[in-house]
């Protein structure tokens, strides 16, 4: 896993074109970040990717996505329209491996990622070119340097009912579920909030501002990185697991001891 990542990074570093692309994208992201601060309603803003990106993205799109989403991303019976979903949506779905989707189920699963960062960037560029939508978030809001108290409050009010107070995930109806946030990067968390993937609602910038999103990320990163003060956390799943441990761990050990205690010594 790590090796794969390294190889990917190396590949990225070696290719001059990707260096330019990354730099360029960085500039755009920073630039759009400024607009985001001013924009009062949402992250919907058009980002200009290079023509090359868009064309490369289109090629990738046609060979990998068009069968479900339609040749012009207008959507088919098997997949929704991607016009106006924005680059953030593409980045979220593809870089978590949810897209390309596997066999049908209640919801898309996290799978091994199928594309390189470069390819994902290109596809995001193509989809962003189709219509205005949330763009890939500004790195400034992914620093986890916000206010964890505010983040915790917002998390509990807007997120905990599905994702659990400790971010351990939870059940939705008919086999759907809100995933655990333990392994989600700040960028993925941010993108999920602005795009509302699958059944998750959208939290646009008017509802939760980019700074507040950073607060939420700060809180989650704090939870993840701070020591578990009480010891093994039992999955953060709460009283049910604690009950099972008390029966099968605590009482189990004690019963094993009572059997030793009651057995005749030789």
């Amino acid at each position: 896993m790590m090796q794969k990542l390294k190889r990917k990074l190396n590949g990225l570093r070696r290719s001059p074109r990707s260096v330019i692309a990354v730099l360029f994208a960085g500039l755009i992201v920073v630039g759009s970040g400024y607009t985001a601060v001013n924009a009062s309603v949402s992250s919907e803003r058009t980002v200009e990717y290079t023509k090359e990106d868009i064309e490369y993205g289109k090629k990738l799109f046609l060979s990998n996505c068009a069968s479900c989403h339609g040749k012009n991303a207008e959507g088919t019976a098997n997949g929704p329209s991607l016009i106006g979903v924005g680059a953030a949506s593409v980045d979220f779905q593809v870089s978590t491996g949810r897209m390309p989707g596997a066999a049908s189920g209640p919801q898309l699963q996290v799978k091994p990622v199928q594309f390189t960062e470069e390819e994902i960037h290109a596809m995001a560029a193509f989809v962003a070119s189709l219509g205005a939508g949330p763009s890939v978030p500004d790195a400034a809001y992914l620093q986890a340097n916000g206010d964890p108290t505010k983040g915790g409050e917002l998390f509990r009010i807007n997120c905990a009912m599905c994702h659990n107070a400790a971010g351990a995930g939870g059940a939705l109806t008919e086999g759907k579920y809100a995933p655990s946030l333990d392994n989600s990067s700040p960028k993925i968390i941010y993108e999920a909030m602005v795009t509302g993937p699958q059944n998750m609602p959208v939290f646009n910038d008017a509802n939760i501002s980019p700074e507040e999103k950073n607060d939420i990320i700060t809180y989650l990163v704090y939870l993840r990185e701070s020591a578990s003060v009480g010891g093994e956390e039992l999955g953060g799943l709460g009283p049910v697991v604690e009950g099972l441990v008390s029966w099968f761990g605590l009482l189990g050990i004690i019963i094993a001891i009572t059997i030793w205690l009651g057995a005749k010594s030789n």
């Binding site: 659990n164 939870g170 809100a178």
Partner: peptide, 14 residues
């Protein structure tokens, strides 16, 4: 107003 997924009582009230 808020609530956490997996809101359950301790086992004996379960």
């Amino acid at each position: 107003s808020p609530v956490s997924a997996g809101t359950q009582p301790d086992w004996y009230i379960g």
